[in-house]
């Protein structure tokens, strides 16, 4: 029975490759999201604080440059960006293929996106609360760390969830340049070897992962919001 064979074969492949792939997807996603926030978060904050009416007004040319760079990076399709940043990847990791190497383009692609997400969160800070802090003599730095960021935590958690699920999607694409994970399984078996069943499984698991991250993120965001009466 060819059908049964296909099932057995697919299950065999999954049993052998899936644990590692899952792990790779998971850690590449988490590590990339982490670094994307390390770079994107300060930028996102600056995009709000540095405005003319912000708490830390920056020169207009600097804000303009920042915005242009972020927009440029955001408009390059990920699949092209991955290849474009090969020199940077080689500089940092020493090679351009493999799971670890795939983190570099992921971070470069994700941090401008994260900067925009953080920007939109931070922008929600109530002007009145900032003004109250200013009236107490808080410095711009203190206002950022003690008012803007903490007041926006629920929104930041929601947006971090969007970031992590988006980056999860990107990791699948990095299978093309040899990045490990679910994407690699889907491409290697499904595209190169016509084992659609394996590809299907990989996709289903990917969907489940997205659901999982989204579920946890949404719950966390609600839980940590003190404006909601629990």
């Amino acid at each position: 029975m060819p059908e049964n064979n296909a099932w057995a074969e697919a299950l065999e492949i999954l049993k052998n490759d899936m644990p590692l792939a899952l792990w790779e997807t998971f850690y590449v996603t988490v590590v990339s999201t982490f670094f994307a926030f390390v770079i994107g978060m300060p930028l996102g904050i600056l995009l709000v604080a540095g405005e003319k009416n912000g708490v830390l007004p920056l020169p207009a040319w600097l804000m303009k440059t920042l915005n242009v760079i972020i927009n440029l990076l955001r408009s390059v399709p990920f699949i092209i960006l991955m290849i474009m940043v090969f020199p940077v990847t080689r500089l940092i990791v020493g090679t351009t293929v493999g799971t670890v190497a795939s983190i570099v383009p992921l971070v470069i692609a994700a941090f401008p996106f994260v900067a925009r997400l953080v920007e939109s969160s931070i922008r929600e800070t109530d002007r009145g609360v900032i003004e109250a802090a200013q009236s107490m003599g808080a410095s711009p730095f203190k206002i950022i760390v003690k008012v803007m960021v903490p007041e926006c935590v629920p929104s930041l958690v929601s947006n971090a969830t969007i970031a992590i699920t988006t980056i999860l999607g990107y990791t699948a694409m990095s299978g093309i340049i040899g990045g490990g994970g679910l994407g690699k399984i889907a491409i290697n078996y499904g595209y190169y070897r016509y084992k659609y069943l394996v590809m299907l499984f990989a996709v289903v698991i990917h969907v489940l992962l997205v659901q999982l991250f989204q579920g946890i993120g949404t719950r966390l965001a609600i839980k940590c919001d003190k404006r909601i009466k629990h």
Partner: peptide
């Protein structure tokens, strides 16, 4: 010089 406001302006997450 302290100030109080019409909309209270408390930190909602504290």
């Amino acid at each position: 010089i302290s100030m109080i406001f019409q909309s209270f302006n408390l930190l909602m997450q504290r």
